[in-house]
Design a protein around this nucleic acid. Sequence first.
DNA 1: CGCTAATCTAGAACAAGTTTCAGGATTGCC
DNA 2: GGCAATCCTGAAACTTGTTCTAGATTAGCG
Lengths: 207, 207
Amino acid sequence: MATHAEPPSSPPLTVRQEARRRRILDASTELARRGGFDAVQMREVAELSQVALGTLYRYFPSKVHLLVATMHDQLQRMHEDLHRHPPSQPDPSARVAGTLMRAFRAMRRDHHLADAMVRALTFADSSVSAEVDAVSRLTTTIILDAMGPDSAPTARQLSAVRVIEHTWHAALITWLSGRASIAQVQIDIETVCTLLTTPKRGPRSGA
Amino acid sequence: MATHAEPPSSPPLTVRQEARRRRILDASTELARRGGFDAVQMREVAELSQVALGTLYRYFPSKVHLLVATMHDQLQRMHEDLHRHPPSQPDPSARVAGTLMRAFRAMRRDHHLADAMVRALTFADSSVSAEVDAVSRLTTTIILDAMGPDSAPTARQLSAVRVIEHTWHAALITWLSGRASIAQVQIDIETVCTLLTTPKRGPRSGA
DNA sequence: CGCTAATCTAGAACAAGTTTCAGGATTGCC
DNA sequence: GGCAATCCTGAAACTTGTTCTAGATTAGCG
């Protein structure tokens, strides 16, 4: 399976097509940076990336597809960055919280871009599930990387990672819409990350 | 403060205005039940509720406002229902999980309606924050009710409730878009609810 | 090179959310 | 009952996501 969903059809893209796709993603990122979700207008993306509107829709069948792909693109950058400078806290759960807070700082630097990407991600319906799944898998990978290669994660920890992702997205949303402060987001992330180092109680899957 | 945001301005609504508002909410609910978010078209809502389009916009300044208000309306019904038949599990955390699973069953019965309400809730931007906040407060109330009147919740538990709400919304989204099974949603909810009965570790606020 | 299929372009057209406006109906108030 | 302010109606207009069409361009291939 490819790292990202292939735009038009199965065959590999030509060089020019790859370049078009990149121009489109860059235009999307740039417009999102300027004004968030609303500023990413399909006509403007087409113009800025020097591509006809119909072509844009051939590469990304909807605005939401485009923005989810943009998020995937940005996440990949962050993933590489994390490989270069991995979190250094001693505790796995603290490393995960630290990683998410680092991502959060990046979002704060570009809150318009964050707005566009996160709104698209949560607004996506089933027609975008493949692309959203790709983003979700990448996020999971980033969190598991932050936990460290120590031991294989327990079933309980995998459940915790799911809940951490849920909380991460929902906390971002409340922050983006101005209903939660930065401090509140931090508390929420730290709270949910304690799930990683909690003694098993309900579930049957102990380490 | 009123339980719901007043539609046009501050003064209390006349009887006819109250009736209009109710017709609009009912029309919204009915259309959402039929076909989810996309089926709630403002022109159709106006027609079905026998109100001019301009009037609809006077009561609810956008489609998202309307659907968030619809969610608030439905949550109030569920809240009353819970008062009549409160959850009976012995453990507070199990009562919360049970309550959310009951809500989830209601959503499964009307998954189109759930789609419309939840998508609107998470798509809402800052212009809807007052209304979204009202929904959030009501949800918090429902969860705290489920925990029981025993003792006042600790600070740690209040943080846990926030994270539970985050997880609840995000898990619903993944289910609605077909990326998570019913069983998976249940696991996520049960996982996050263990936060309520976890020994304090990071925070300083012990019971 | 010349052919064919796929792709790309420009632009019109369509759909649904939102805004606007002129005029009629209701309401509050004296 | 009459007056002013507000609200409501009906319809058109505007915006932006999406689709469609007809004609270039390009890619792959003999």
